[in-house]
Every structure is written in C-alpha cells, then in structure tokens.
C-alpha cells in the first residue's frame, strides 16, 4: 500500500510517517504545494493524506487537480481548520474523509483502513485476526466460526481495536470514536473501563485468541495471543 503524506509541519509528518510505517505501508512525504503537485502527477497512490494549509498553495487546489485528472486517489484531508465550510468543500471536491487536527494516531489508522476497505471491496468485508472474524457488513463477530453476541458499542470497540492491532489506543481516542462528540468534553473516561471489562470477559469465555491489555492507565492495546 502506497501512501502520500502532504503535510508542511515536519515534526507531525515525521510522527505520522513512523506510525504508518509500523503498519508496513510505503509512505512518501511532500511538504509543500509544488512538490506535492509533482508527486501527484507522476505517481499513483492508494491513499493521500492532505493538509489544507500548505506553503505555496491550498490543499483544496490539489484536490481539484486530482478530481480533474480523475486520478483514483483516496484522499483524507487532515486539517487544523475545524470549519464546516472547509469540510463540505473538501468532501464536495471528492475527498473521502476529513480529520481535524489534533487527531489520535489510532483514529487516522482506522480512517485509512476504512478507505482501503472501500477501495478493495472484493466480496468479503471481514477482519480476520487469530481465530476471530469480524464482519463489517453483517456486523457480526465470530470466534472459531461461532457467533459471539456483542452489543452495538462492544462491536464498535472491538472493530476499532482490530483495525489498530498492536497499537496503543488511548481512552480519549476510543471515547471519541465510539461514543461520539457528546462525550468529547466529558471530564473523565473511567466509564470506558467497564465496557472493556465486559468485552474481555466475553472474549475470554469464548476462547478468542485476542486480548485487550491495559497500557499504563492511558489506554489499551489489542494483541493476538
């Protein structure tokens, strides 16, 4: 999988790149408008991460070029602008997703995977890990072929963990992803612990070969046993 990261902030680009390389993606980086334009016109990418505010031009212009040349780029806008206008313009210009800075690495990971899944939909839409299978279309979770009964939120949590296998998921990231914006301002995320505890119990009793570990009180990590 080849990803183009267009981001002018060197430190952020570096962190994103490192994180994406952990997922074994091939990452190229462009830090300003012209070099991004050059890369877009020369190569093809499976996914483009696009910052809107760039030295030398606007990311939205790049998006227009991509749309005109009908390059099959799956673009995720990463912007510090949390303005609805930008979001609508971006999505209107054919971007697949819009992520506001600052974001959690786990969230970016999940969005990229969602883009790939949409792109490479060849029948099955399943995440297979160990002896488990998560079917996104049917919203079913099976262990050794047997259905495990999960409620809506448990399914969403597990889904988030599975696309971020072996990666740290902070409680914040999980809360924002699963519980939505209403929880965003919530003052503490201790309630997540109970959800995780229930989920762990279900996974253990069904002998699933995956495990959710706590990470230093900050968050969790799903690993394959």
């Amino acid at each position: 999988m080849k990803i183009l990261l267009i981001e002018d902030e060197a430190e952020l680009a570096d962190a994103i790149q490192k994180s994406l390389e952990k997922e074994l993606y091939l990452v190229e980086h462009a830090s300003e408008f012209d070099s991004a334009m050059e890369k877009i016109s020369l190569y093809e990418y499976d996914c483009i991460l696009l910052d809107v505010m760039l030295p030398g031009g606007s990311g939205l212009e790049l998006l227009e070029v991509l749309k005109k040349t009908k390059v099959e780029g799956n673009v995720i806008i990463i912007s510090a602008k949390d303005s609805l206008d930008d979001k609508l313009i971006g999505l209107g210009l054919g971007a697949d997703d819009y992520l506001t800075k600052p974001f959690h690495i786990a969230e970016l990971n999940a969005r990229i995977k969602a883009v790939f899944r949409r792109k490479n939909l060849n029948g099955s839409n399943q995440i297979l890990t160990g002896n488990t299978a998560l079917d996104l279309t049917e919203r079913e979770f099976k262990v050794d072929g047997e259905l495990l009964d999960l409620n809506r939120k448990e399914f969403d949590i597990l889904n988030y963990f599975l696309v971020n296998k072996n990666r740290l998921i902070t409680k914040n990231a999980l809360a924002e992803h699963v519980w939505g914006d209403a929880i965003d301002q919530a003052d503490n995320f201790d309630f997540i612990y109970y959800q995780i505890k229930n989920l762990r119990k279900k996974l253990q009793s069904s002998k699933a070969e995956i495990e959710i570990q706590s990470i230093y009180g900050v968050g969790y990590k799903l690993t394959e046993l």
Binding site: E9, E11, L12, A15, I16, K18, S19, K22, M53, A80, K81, D82, T100, K101, P102, F103, H104, I105, A106, R167, L168, T170, I215, Y216, V218, G219, K221
Partner: peptide, 20 residues
C-alpha cells in the same frame, strides 16, 4: 486554532508513538 492545533497534534502523535 491552526497554530495551536498543529503543535498539539505533534505532541499527541509523538507521545502516542513513544508509549508504543
């Protein structure tokens, strides 16, 4: 917002990576 969000994004990303 841009000026503050970006450093915050950098710090968050780096710390999350560090914890991994």
């Amino acid at each position: 917002s841009h000026e503050l969000q970006t450093p915050l994004a950098v710090i968050t990303a780096k710390l999350e990576l560090l914890l991994e």
